[in-house]
Design a protein around this nucleic acid. Structure first.
Lengths: 224, 224
DNA sequence: TTAGAATTCAAACAAACGTTTGAATTAGTT
DNA sequence: AACTAATTCAAACGTTTGTTTGAATTCTAA
């Protein structure tokens, strides 16, 4: 509805989106000004407001363009393993649910050619973004995906309290976020990491996540 | 060196630090203005620059006042378990190292009376802060603590490749960060969580972390 | 070739930002 | 009571922010 059908329009739009994505990753949402974006994209300052309406709308589109595709892949992967399980008359395993959710994210994070890695680092930081506007559309964007994966996870772990599964899924998202942010996240680990082969990240992370998910349930030993 | 020995000074300083901490948590570092801070603290706009010099210095002190105490507790806890192990001629267990590191953080996060919870939520978000100035002093503040805990973790897991331990510790920090951010982090899980008893968080998280740490090493199966 | 819509552009807008100033006020010391 | 240093205060500083304006330009279609 906002997309102009003009001539040079689409090109300018893409240049702005790419520049914004990269700058948002490097400096954060607030600290990235319209002038930084338009200068990097090589377009006029007014171009953002002309093509997107406002800075908030630009932020929205930067996230939506990648997120809708990512969650589409996640749901497709979940569909696939559920169909396979149905076909052989068995149930989906927890590890399959986790892989359907986290593997597409990890794979996108290894794509340095088309900005996938840049976006995933930005996304990892945005989970804790205080900006109310950003939180709102992120929640909307994730609603369906999260609903489906939680249901699948519950079904794959009968007998385990849903509250515990929910918390562990939350923990897993945190671990994955840090995995993607990687060494760059903070110079805390500067000088410690050396193996940076991104292909090794998926098995490395999946081992950890599965170990955490399958850990013995905590003993709260409250005297209630 | 910057602390004034005036009369009403200390009171004003505390009021500013508390207001800043709370607002930084709610709106983020950049989106919190000096005018918001001084209005909340009930002091004059110029008071921040008078007492702290600049907004950056104020940010620095907000973090340092809590972090130095937190890391002091962590190192004290590590000293304790290492002394106990020495006394009985055995080695420190991985679970003891983890508890020495994560328990003080979780405990601080349950303190809603004196702003501990507020600060820990702020800290969780700040691990991925792009602001170069913040990243720098956070790395400095953590350097010694991280060095000691990594060494202890390596010693407690002989035979396990250090690179794998390092990554898993990184993952654990991510999980803990999300655990502390909790339900508030994003409305993603809105309506799902119900058990919010903070006392249950430590055993819940420790089970998960230990399960992840002790998971089988990943099989990279690369055909190199 | 001309009409017309889409896009770009330089310039300016008001608002908010962190910081500085210099005078007024406060409180402890002599 | 007089002096001195610390602190508070209202006001203003120059910059930067996101956004808007209206004219210039570009390209398509008739």
């Amino acid at each position: 509805m906002n997309a102009p059908q003009g001539r040079h329009g689409p090109e300018t739009r893409h240049r702005i989106l790419d520049a914004a994505e990269s700058l948002f990753m490097e400096h954060g949402l607030d600290a990235t000004s319209m002038r930084m974006i338009t200068a990097t994209a090589g377009v006029n300052l007014a171009a953002v407001n002309y093509h997107f309406g406002s800075k908030d709308s630009l932020i929205h589109e930067v996230f939506q363009r990648r997120l809708s595709e990512l969650n589409r892949q996640r749901l497709a992967a979940l569909d696939r393993v559920e169909r396979e399980a149905d076909a052989r008359g068995s149930k989906v395993k927890p590890s399959q649910v986790l892989e359907a959710y986290f593997a597409p994210a990890l794979q996108l994070a290894t794509d340095t050619e088309h900005g996938g890695r840049t976006f995933m680092q930005l996304l990892g930081r945005t989970y804790t973004e205080p900006n109310a506007f950003v939180r709102k559309f992120l929640a909307e964007e994730y609603a369906e995906t999260l609903e489906r994966f939680l249901a699948a996870l519950y079904a794959s772990l009968p007998g385990v309290p849903r509250g515990e599964i929910l918390w562990r899924f939350h923990f897993m998202m945190g671990a994955t976020s840090y995995a993607i942010a990687g060494t760059d996240a903070l110079q805390l680990f500067a000088g410690h990491f050396d193996d940076e082969d991104p292909a090794r990240m998926l098995p490395r992370l999946m081992s950890f996540l599965l170990g955490g998910l399958r850990a013995p349930l905590p003993d709260f030993d409250d005297a209630a």
